[in-house]
Amino acid sequence: MAAVAFWAGGAMCELSATSLAAKIFWSKVEYIGTLGTPVLFLLLALDYNHIDLMRRRYWLATLFAIPLTCLLLAAGNEYHHLVWTSYRPSPSGYNLLIYGHGPVFWLGVAGYSYLMMLLGSLLLIRSLHYYPAHFRGQSITLMLSAVAPWLGNILYLSGAFPLRGLDPTPHSFAFTGMVFAIDLLYLRQLYLVPVARTRAFEAMGDGIVVVDQQLRILDINPSGARMLGKPARQLQGNALPAPWLGGAMLEKESRHLELMVPDSGIILDIRAYRAGSPAIPACW
């Protein structure tokens, strides 16, 4: 949102300037926010999905490499005209200027920004699937707030916005910021960042095995795989390699058992739960 504020501030100065040179100068300044905002939106979505790139400086530098290159090219546009090719007054008046866009703009500015926004939006959609149901309201709210910048930028680039030459994208991001502010300050939803179930499942010291009625392994965590003596990828989808466990687990909906592994002397403390669905999770 700091980048959006910088973007909007540069746009305000560009709209209020009357000379062509001043307008071009402020357009270059606002590119700091224009190019940084989509990448920061992606980083927000990555952090919300517990994918931490901030500690991996190589990936962080890679994400900002193209925006930095485009910013430098915009600063020296007079020498190559790869970002802006022409400037003309808008037929809508109001001191607006229509910029002709070059290949660097379409590929490095618009194209790369759309890519960052698309990846960020897909990550928010991903969270709808992986997070518990009571956290889906957060993801849906974030998704809806991300729709506004998409619409604003499409209207600007297509020339469909009534005031030609006015970019409504920073105003759209301001709407996104307002939604975030409501989430943070009033609903306080974003303080409750959900913990990925997959990580908790993988990290548990107890072995967990989920089997169906035919005792085929539907899911298993690393501890369970170690107890069964095979890698998890070899066990999933195959029959439980301990048929002596099957009868004990299928007898009742919930059981606490102590069984000795045949020919080993190892005693397992088993808590078996039979769910209402065809799957029967067993934990030991």
Rank of each mutant, 00 (worst) to 15 (best):
A22S: 15
A282Y: 02
L250P: 02
P262N: 01
M54D: 08
R136Q: 15
R199E: 14
G10F: 00
D47F: 08
C13A: 14
Y130N: 08
H129V: 15
S127M: 15
S158R: 07
T37M: 05
R126D: 15
L250C: 10
M227I: 09
G102C: 08
Y87M: 06
I280M: 14
A75W: 12
R274H: 03
A133Y: 07
K252S: 12
R126N: 04
N95F: 08
L15C: 06
G93T: 03
C13N: 13
S90D: 05
G9R: 00
L268I: 06
M143F: 15
N49F: 07
M54N: 08
P170E: 01
Y114D: 14
N238A: 09
F180C: 07
G276T: 09
P38V: 03
L157F: 10
G102M: 06
M249D: 02
S145D: 00
N238V: 01
S223Y: 06
Y131P: 01
R274N: 03
I24F: 04
T62V: 14
L20Y: 05
P91G: 00
A248E: 10
I51T: 12
A8V: 00
Q236M: 11
L218E: 09
V83H: 00
P162W: 14
L15F: 11
R136Y: 05
E14C: 04
R233I: 09
L46S: 11
G33F: 04
A17E: 11
L43F: 14
R126C: 10
